[in-house]
Amino acid sequence: LVRIYAGMVRQYYEALKVWEEEGSPISTLSASNSTKKHPALDQIEKLRKDILSYSNQLMLNPKSQRDSETKQEEKASPFAQFMSQSGGGGSG
């Protein structure tokens, strides 16, 4: 998973560099003389979305770490679950 993430980041920066060297075109003409999104820009946007998805899975950003901590806090310990089910949660 880490190798895939690293490869995508590398592809992203290479595609971004090439796109900027071409003058950062937003659109291009299609075969039917209509305008469409430049293929390099489309590739950059897809890579950006994939990188974000993988960074969440790898917990590389603060939001994914916070979400993980919240999920862990929501899960009660097995002992706490046993105590609440058995009615042994009171004092005395």
Rank of each mutant, 00 (worst) to 15 (best):
I51R: 05
L52G: 12
I51V: 09
S27F: 06
A15Q: 09
D67P: 01
N33F: 12
L52D: 11
E74P: 02
E22F: 00
H38C: 13
G90D: 14
R48A: 11
S27G: 08
S30C: 14
L1A: 07
E69P: 00
S68V: 02
A80R: 06
T70G: 00
G92M: 12
Q11M: 11
Y13M: 04
E45C: 10
E69M: 11
S34K: 12
K71N: 03
R10Y: 08
Q81D: 01
K63Q: 01
I51G: 01
P62C: 01
L47M: 14
D50F: 11
G88W: 08
S84L: 14
I44Y: 03
Y12H: 04
S91G: 10
Y13L: 00
S30D: 07
L16M: 11
P39H: 02
E21H: 11
N56M: 11
L60E: 00
Q81M: 07
L58D: 06
Y5N: 12
L29Y: 13
L52N: 11
S24I: 02
L58M: 08
A76N: 05
D42I: 03
A76C: 09
E22V: 05
S27N: 15
K71P: 04
A76L: 08
G88Y: 05
A80D: 07
Q85D: 09
L47S: 07
E74S: 11
I4A: 08
K49M: 15
K49N: 15
K63T: 08
Y54D: 06
G7E: 03
S34R: 14
S84R: 07
L60H: 05
S77T: 15
S53P: 01
K17W: 06
P25W: 06
R10P: 09
S55F: 06
S64A: 13
P62S: 14
D42M: 10
T28C: 13
G90V: 04
A76H: 15
L60Q: 04
